[in-house]
Nucleic acid binder design. Structure first.
Lengths: 199, 199
DNA sequence: TCGTCCATCTTACTCAGAGTAGGTTACCCC
DNA sequence: GGGGTAACCTACTCTGAGTAAGATGGACGA
């Protein structure tokens, strides 16, 4: 019997299971309010096992974040391959992102609730997620755009990431806004600028 | 003698002093790593006093956040009065913001490190800060722009706030970027859009 | 000058939850 | 079947948030 209430479980499987449970608990209760005892109990294992596999509470969160980040990267990167031009690439990437945050709310929740940890190793880890996204965008832009100075390009990429992050959070409060609509809003400002709408 | 090591102190003064110290400790160590014992000691008072005045660790953080928010609001609102047009208003507001985050690093640090508290009362408090800023921008825009649908306008405001927040964090890593330059970068994307730079 | 009242302040605790020391048991493989 | 080891557990320590109950300085009236 491979299923049922099998006790002993190989390391890799157990880790996956722990990460899955932890992702749920962290995103439900928030990092601070979540307790290692509770996670351990839900997994059906004792607390020291969590520490055996992840070293610390923060380490466990880190594993969850890495997991989510990998998915996000995969999704957005895949979305932009084969884009016709800059506008198309940007639109595809944005759409993939907004779909991701809708379909994987818990994962997204972790990626944004990070900050609990400023000054700790996990902060770097989350910052790394943003860097991943800004790098992707910067790469896109260097491919499609005339390069002004590098600093300006970097700033623009940061700008896009921040804007989308915020818009995504706004979307959580607005179920009626579909990923497609959100993408439209984003493209509207990003691509054409606010000037076109001035009176 | 009003100064020196006067012990007993009126409630209002003591509160101000506590907030000041707490702002330093929170932004230096991060919320999680900061201890109430340490703050109490630095203030030169015992821990129960902090609880007497602020009820909880989170309450103390909250007081700090409110303080910072008030300053931010004051600064940005003042900056936009008497602007000639939409572009001018936006530029003035942005500049005021980037100056604020440079000159009051600790306050800004608190405003962004909030998230430690998702799911708790303080989260609402911080979200309120953003709402304050988005409202300000939305108001600006409704004054200067043709109103499309409201949802779109709201999304645009969120977008601007998120983008600037992110750019501000980026600025922390780039001392060589002055508030003026940052404002330029932001205006460049926001106002004109990315289209103009496409190859 | 001296009591008296109360806001300010303190000592000395409880308690939850992160993290750990050291021993136990199921499973794989010869 | 019997090592050997990876998976696992019980039973602790320790830090830091939060609190109960009492001490004390000083303003103010008599």
């Amino acid at each position: 019997m491979t299923t049922a209430k099998r006790k002993r479980m190989p390391r890799a499987d157990r880790m996956r299971q722990m990460i899955e449970v932890a992702e749920q608990v962290f995103s439900a209760r928030g990092y601070a309010a979540a307790s290692m005892d509770e996670i351990a109990e839900l997994v059906g294992v004792s607390k020291p096992m969590l520490y055996e596999y992840f070293n610390s509470k923060e380490g466990l969160l880190l594993a969850c974040i890495r997991e989510s980040r990998a998915v996000l990267r995969e999704v957005t990167e895949q979305a932009t391959v084969g884009a016709a031009d800059a506008e198309d690439a940007l639109r595809r990437g944005l759409l993939a992102f907004f779909v991701f945050i809708r379909e994987r709310r818990q994962a997204w929740s972790l990626l944004r609730h990070e900050m609990a940890l400023i000054g700790t190793p996990a902060a770097d880890e989350v910052e790394e997620t943003r860097r991943q996204q800004t790098d992707l965008i910067a790469a896109l832009m260097s491919g499609y755009f005339d390069s002004g100075d590098d600093l300006r390009a970097e700033a623009a990429a940061e700008f896009v990431v921040g804007a989308c992050e915020r818009l995504a959070i706004w979307c959580e409060r607005h179920d009626e806004v579909s990923p497609e609509t959100a993408t439209g809003y984003a493209m509207d400002v990003l691509w054409s600028g606010l000037a076109q709408r001035a009176r």
